[in-house]
Write a protein that binds this DNA or RNA. Structure first.
Length: 278
DNA sequence: ACCCAGGAAATTC
DNA sequence: GAATTTCATGGG
């Protein structure tokens, strides 16, 4: 069981899955990755221009095509972005295989609430514990040599909990934010799917109805969960990068693919922390 | 002991 | 209103 995509370009799994946009893919000793998307546990690897999904069902081909954003020509995007600023061109050359995944909106919401004032390493640990404690165990799919795999928890399941029930995941002051988010999704106060087409500022405003969601987390949810590529999350790394590497330039110059530019710059900055020693 | 982490809420000025 | 403090937790 598996799915094969041929002639895949501009995709490097290491760059795409470990650049800080997602938190559930685990690198394997053979260089592949194992992870869970929309309740499907798979292994993923590349061979030249081939993308191989071990344990995936043929009926999910479209879902995986969308997840890795294979319908967008990232070569063309890079040419367009690289013409805007030489440092952006360099950042894109540094990790030319980054793609913006189409993650589940609710998962993006929860994981980026967890991300606030936190390290990526610790975010991954909290998300793992969240799934192990409150996600449905997955049967079938990719054989799991080490450990059972779990779907990301549903909003309904989390909405029924109280903040103290989250103690085992050790997310600290974020527990009440997570429960508030789950409740507002479960009861329809915030409709994530409607945010795909809403004007950007209105979509952001909807997300900010949730306690614990400010401008930055909202921008991350819109970019990584709803594929709003015009979003440009400004975290501590990006603020430093714009100030130091782009001389205070406004992100608006990056246009409709600003979100992709952001990911090149974020990854480039994180891999070159010495640029900001002062 | 002290500092910071893909921020945002609560408090204070 | 704008600036500062606090919020759990863990690693350096």
């Amino acid at each position: 069981m598996g799915i094969l995509f041929e002639n895949v370009t501009d995709l490097d799994l290491h760059e795409t899955l470990l650049c800080g946009q997602c938190f559930r893919w685990k690198e394997q000793p053979d260089g592949g990755f194992r992870g869970v998307v929309r309740g499907r546990a798979v292994g993923v690897r590349t061979q030249g221009g081939r993308l191989i999904l071990d344990g995936a069902q043929e009926s999910d081909r479209g879902m995986w095509f969308d997840y890795f954003d294979l319908g967008l020509d990232y070569g063309a995007v890079k040419r367009q972005l690289s013409a805007i600023h030489p440092t952006l061109a360099e950042a894109a050359r540094f990790a030319p295989g980054i793609r913006i995944l189409r993650q589940e909106p609710f998962e993006a919401l929860i994981t980026f609430i967890i991300s606030q004032n936190n390290h990526i390493k610790r975010i991954e640990g909290i998300v793992d514990r969240l799934c192990e404690h409150f996600g449905e165990p997955i049967c079938g799919g990719e054989a799991s040599p080490s450990r059972e795999q779990f779907a990301f928890p549903t909003a309904g399941r989390l909405a029924a909990l109280s903040p103290d029930d989250l103690m085992p995941i050790r997310a600290g002051f974020r527990h009440r934010y997570l429960i508030d988010a789950a409740q507002k999704i479960a009861d329809g106060t915030v409709d994530l799917e409607s945010l795909r087409t809403l004007p950007y500022d209105e979509a952001r405003g909807e997300l900010m109805k949730i306690t614990g969601v400010g401008v930055k987390v909202a921008d991350c949810v819109l970019l990584y969960g709803l594929h709003r590529l015009d979003g440009f999350p400004l975290d501590v790394w990006m603020k430093r990068a714009m100030a130091v590497l782009f001389d205070g330039l406004s992100p608006s110059v990056f246009g409709q693919y600003a979100g992709i530019a952001q990911q090149y710059i974020f990854h480039y900055s994180r891999m070159h922390p010495e640029l900001f020693d002062n």
